[in-house]
Amino acid sequence: MYAQLVKSTGKNVQSLEEMSPQERAFQERIDRGEKIEPKEWMPDAYRKNLIRQIGQHAHSEVVGQLPEGNWITRAPTLERKANLLAKVQDEAGHGLYLYCAAETLGVSRDELYEMLHSGKMKYSSIFNYPTLTWADMGAVGWLVDGAAIMNQVPLQRTSFGPYARAMVRICKEESFHQRQGFQIMMVMANGTKEQKRMAQDALNRFWGPALMMFGPSDKDSVHSAQSMAWKIKMNTNDELRQKFVDETVPQAEYLGLKVPDDNLKFNEETEHYEFTQPDWDEFYDVLKGNGPCNHERLETRKKAWDEGAWVRDAMMAHAEKKAARKQAAE
């Protein structure tokens, strides 16, 4: 998940006949469901697209620690504090696998960080929203991780081997986070009057941004077709959004919370919910850097990176000195 509006080559998808023999052989391997491994030949555009997608996903895991870190220090019980710590630890771990997967494509973690810090690469828009009450820790787990899972489960079958394998592990942990988030919501929704209010307020604020996580509607999503042909995107944005709504609405009902959409209704014929599209103007604003927390999130990451420079430099220097001393001793 967490890759929205990943720019593709912008060209139309070529038919097999239009491709060079090498490209055709590559596409046929993908069509047969074979995995592409790092050292094998791949079209430049496939490589570039994957770097953008995996990089964006990795950055989202890293930046995604921040809205939760905002509540780790205020977690209301020892158990909740431990759960949240375990969760952010998992997320940092996901970031690590994903940066490693991207490295196999020839881009270093430092280069990817540089692109994040300079604004050349994005992270998921969802992390530009603030976490204002403890119920947000529930809503983030339930809705944000829930939406992430919708996208990531199919990506376990994606064509690039290291990415697919990273997804297998990530999905297991994400579904655990989602259950944990739902459980926080359940306690809040069944709690005191104030807690119920916090739970409803969190749903009100996160519903739209969660729907946006799947990216713009298919008709406006110019980059999807090539990514789908390459199997680095497995479903369309609208398919996944619908699946998310269909699964989440009954959960909200179970919690006794109201989904903030007056037009929401179940269509007996299609067996799907009809729902209002999120505010796409807001989505594009957030992507442009005008979300409620864009500035804070990026500044926090940059500050952490800059202030940590002396530590990274020292670690490198120590490793070099150690190696030199060892050599001198031999």
Binding site: T73, L78, A82, L85, Q89, Y99, R301, G308
Partner: peptide
Amino acid sequence: TSEWCGTAPALEEDIALANTALDLIGQTK
């Protein structure tokens, strides 16, 4: 230790700090 969340000098350090904090909170319990 948990105050460091997401702001350590490197990703490996973020993981290690969260892990340490998690151990300590577990022991607290």
